[in-house]
Design a protein around this nucleic acid. Structure first.
Length: 139
DNA sequence: GCCAACGTTGGC
DNA sequence: GCCAACGTTGGC
C-alpha cells in the first residue's frame, strides 16, 4: 500500500464536499507527473486531502476505491485519468504547510520541494510523521 | 530543436 | 495583489 497527498483549492472542491459525497472522482489533473502518480495508485492506498491557496493545510484522509480510468472532464480522446476517492475521516488537528516546512524530517516531500505538483507521493515514514502531527490514527 | 512569450499554480 | 516556478505554445 502506498501513501499520497492530493491537493485541492477549497473554492474548487472542498473537503466538506468530499465528506458530504462520500466517494468522489478525483478529476481535473492536467499535469503529466501528477497523472503518473494517479495511474500508480492502487485500491486501498491512502492520501491526505490538502487545501491549497486559502488554507494551506491537511484537512482529511481519503482512500482509493477505484484505480485510474479516463477522466470524464478531459477532452475527448485525451489520455488524462482520474481515480475515485472515499472520505475516511477528518484530521483531528489539521496540519498547516508552515508546520510541515518547519519540520526538518519533512523537507524532502514534494509538497515543499515542488509546490505546483497536485498529486504527491509520500514515504511511509513521512505519512506516519504527518499522522502524528495531525493526531490521526490509521484504522 | 531552441527559446521567448505567455498562462497557470500556489505561496507569500 | 505580487511574483516565482513551471508548463505550454509558437515563431524561427
Amino acid at each position: 500500500m502506498a501513501y499520497w497527498l492530493i491537493k485541492s483549492e477549497p473554492e474548487a472542491f472542498s473537503w466538506a464536499q468530499q465528506m458530504a459525497n462520500g466517494t468522489e472522482p478525483w478529476t481535473g489533473v492536467r499535469n503529466h507527473q501528477a497523472k503518473k502518480n494517479l495511474a500508480t495508485m492502487e485500491i486501498g492506498d491512502r492520501a491526505f486531502f490538502y487545501h491549497s491557496v486559502s488554507e494551506k493545510r491537511i484537512v482529511g484522509v481519503v482512500e482509493v476505491v477505484r484505480v485510474a480510468y479516463p477522466d470524464p472532464t478531459a477532452p475527448e480522446g485525451s489520455a488524462w485519468v482520474c481515480t475515485d476517492m472515499r472520505a475516511v475521516g477528518a484530521m483531528p488537528r489539521p496540519v498547516a504547510l508552515a508546520e510541515i516546512k518547519a519540520t526538518p524530517d519533512l523537507q524532502d516531500i514534494a509538497l515543499v520541494r515542488q509546490s505546483r505538483l497536485s498529486v504527491v507521493p509520500l514515504t511511509p515514514t513521512q505519512w506516519d510523521r504527518l499522522c502524528v502531527m495531525g493526531e490521526w490514527v490509521d484504522s
